[in-house]
C-alpha cells in the first residue's frame, strides 16, 4: 500500500499529524535560514583584525549554536522523549571531555617537524 494524502482517510490521528508536520515546515525553514546566516557570519569574522581570542570564542559559540540547532530541530530532539537527548549527550560529554583533555596533554614540539616538505 502506498500511502498518499488520501481524502478518504480523514482519521483524526492522521489529520493531527499532518497539521503538526505543517507547522514544523516553517520551523525547519527558519532554522535553515538561521544556519546559513550564522555560517556567513563565521566566514566574515575570521578576517576581523581584533584579538584572536574574541574571534575564536565567537567561532566556538556560533558553531555550538549551529550544532544545537540541528540536533534540536532537524533531529527532532525537541519533539522526542528526553531520553534521546540524554543518550546523545552522554556520548557528546565523554567525547568532548576526551578531546579537551588530549589537547591539554600535548605541547608544541620546540624542535619542529623532522622533515619539511616544500608544498609549492
Amino acid at each position: 500500500m502506498i500511502p498518499s494524502p488520501d481524502p478518504r482517510l480523514p482519521e483524526s490521528g492522521h489529520a493531527a499529524v499532518i497539521a503538526e508536520e505543517h507547522k514544523k515546515y516553517f520551523t525547519f525553514f527558519n532554522v535553515s535560514i538561521a544556519l546559513i546566516a550564522i555560517t556567513a557570519i563565521e566566514l566574515v569574522i575570521v578576517y576581523f583584525p581584533i584579538n584572536k581570542w574574541i574571534v575564536l570564542t565567537a567561532l566556538g559559540v556560533l558553531s555550538l549554536i549551529k550544532f544545537l540547532a540541528v540536533i534540536w530541530w532537524f533531529m527532532h530532539l525537541k519533539w522526542d522523549r528526553m531520553l534521546c537527548t540524554i543518550l546523545f549527550m552522554i556520548g557528546m560529554v565523554i567525547a568532548g571531555g576526551t578531546v579537551t583533555a588530549l589537547m591539554f596533554l600535548f605541547e608544541e614540539d620546540p624542535a619542529g617537524p623532522p622533515m619539511m616538505f616544500m608544498l609549492f
Binding site: 543518550l87 552522554i90 556520548g91 557528546m92 578531546v99 588530549l102 589537547m103 619542529g112 617537524p113
Partner: peptide, 29 residues
C-alpha cells in the same frame, strides 16, 4: 541515537588527532 553517541567518539578521536598535530607543529604547513 546510541550509535550516534558512539560516533561522537569516532570523530572525537579523529578531530583530536588532527588538532594535536596542528598544536605540535604549528608551522608545518
Amino acid at each position: 541515537w546510541a550509535f550516534l553517541a558512539s560516533d561522537c567518539m569516532f570523530f572525537g578521536t579523529l578531530i583530536s588527532t588532527h588538532l594535536i598535530y596542528r598544536k605540535i607543529y604549528p608551522d608545518i604547513v
